[in-house]
């Protein structure tokens, strides 16, 4: 590097390039990974397909995980029942889409998107409401005890999963994508599924919207400050509990959105699907740094890409690859890629 050449006027504020780059390393991880994928995968077209599919998957996981990581950051609450919102979102959304068969079957992009929007809205309303009840009934009494939180939210997950069986029956449901979202288009010789591109767009929109709220609004200020020191936010005159309930509901609704997205991605839904996705979500929030939305975003894209590249290069290693990724990142940065500052341990 050129600026490591001897210089006789070092100022205190000017750190060496390597030092200054350090906080940005995680951000570079995604492009580097995509580049590595390009080198490892022989055909450019398959690389492009895999990259889009990895990003789509990552975006969906991000949508699901963002709420969970914020809930943890804000109130130190770990919700193992988050997967229930994914499943419920998927089932509610699918029911709406099946009911709107005329709209989803029509070869009109507008009608199709309206149907999907209706499904998403219904799913988010239901899971948001569930989140509210979940926070009230299940989480509220066990603030401050991680052990009890894990146990109780796990119990909540079991109950919610069983309720899906009661309401929708035990069998899986097949759901086809709306007419105009089926199939793929060709770009630079690679077949890109339309739906995956849409998923990337939706995920990106959610990320940007979250960032906007967190960076530009008073509510965002309260949330960011609350992640670091909830007590001080209280002492400044903000009711953090109310903010927390809001974040919990929003996070649950986002999980519901993720559930609908995942349903249309897989085109089949089952009751335990939420909990299966949670495994990836946990990996993402751990490597991203519990409590950090940015870290969660980077982590989700990384996991999505690694999963897809690995599945292509060595199918049997797909799931193991993410565990390996998690181990590697935890060895590199034990608190995750974007560690969250906490006022106290």
């Amino acid at each position: 590097m050129s600026n490591t050449a001897p210089s006789h006027a070092p100022t205190i504020t000017r750190l060496p390039l390597a030092e200054r780059l350090k906080p940005w390393l995680p951000v570079l991880l995604v492009p580097v990974l995509i580049l590595l994928g390009f080198l490892a995968i022989p055909a450019t077209s398959s690389w492009l397909t895999l990259t889009v599919s990895g990003l789509a998957m990552g975006m969906m996981i991000f949508v699901i995980a963002s709420g969970m990581t914020l809930v943890f950051g804000l109130m130190d609450v770990i919700n193992f029942g988050h997967g229930a919102f994914i499943s419920f979102g998927a089932f509610v959304g699918t029911s709406v889409l099946l009911a709107l068969g005329a709209m989803t079957g029509a070869p009109s992009l507008l009608l199709n998107l309206l149907a999907v929007a209706g499904a998403v809205l219904a799913a988010m309303v239901v899971t948001g409401g569930m989140g509210w009840a979940f926070e009230r009934v299940i989480v509220r009494p066990v603030y401050g005890s991680h052990l009890k939180q894990i146990l109780v939210t796990m119990g909540g997950l079991i109950v919610a999963e069983q309720l899906i069986y009661v309401i929708w029956g035990g069998h899986e449901i097949v759901i086809a994508r709306p007419e105009t979202l089926k199939g793929a288009f060709t770009f630079a010789g690679a077949a890109l599924e339309k739906y995956r591109v849409l998923a990337v767009a939706v995920g990106l929109a959610v990320f940007l919207a979250l960032r906007l709220v967190l960076r530009r609004t008073k509510l965002g200020l309260i949330v960011r400050a609350g992640v670091e020191n909830p007590e001080m936010v209280q002492a400044m005159g903000y009711n953090i509990t109310r903010v927390f309930v809001g974040v919990f509901v929003a996070g649950s609704a986002l999980a519901g959105l993720g559930g609908v997205m995942w349903a249309l991605y897989q085109e089949v839904i089952t009751a335990p699907m939420g909990n299966e996705i949670m495994i990836l979500v946990f990996i993402v929030v751990i490597i991203g740094g519990l409590g950090s939305v940015e870290g969660c975003f980077i982590g989700a894209l990384t996991v999505g890409l690694v999963q897809n590249y690995a599945a292509f290069l060595e199918p049997k290693l797909a799931l193991i690859s993410n565990i390996a990724l998690m181990v590697a990142i935890l060895m590199w940065r034990p608190m995750g890629m974007v560690p969250v500052v906490k006022a106290k341990g």
Binding site: H146, I150, E276, I279, M331, P334
Partner: peptide
């Protein structure tokens, strides 16, 4: 791997590893 950092990581990491 996990206890060094935070005890709650243990629950999540074990869940991920066990399913893998």
């Amino acid at each position: 791997l996990s206890l060094r950092v935070r005890a709650i990581f243990f629950a999540m990491i074990t869940l991920a590893i066990a399913s893998a």
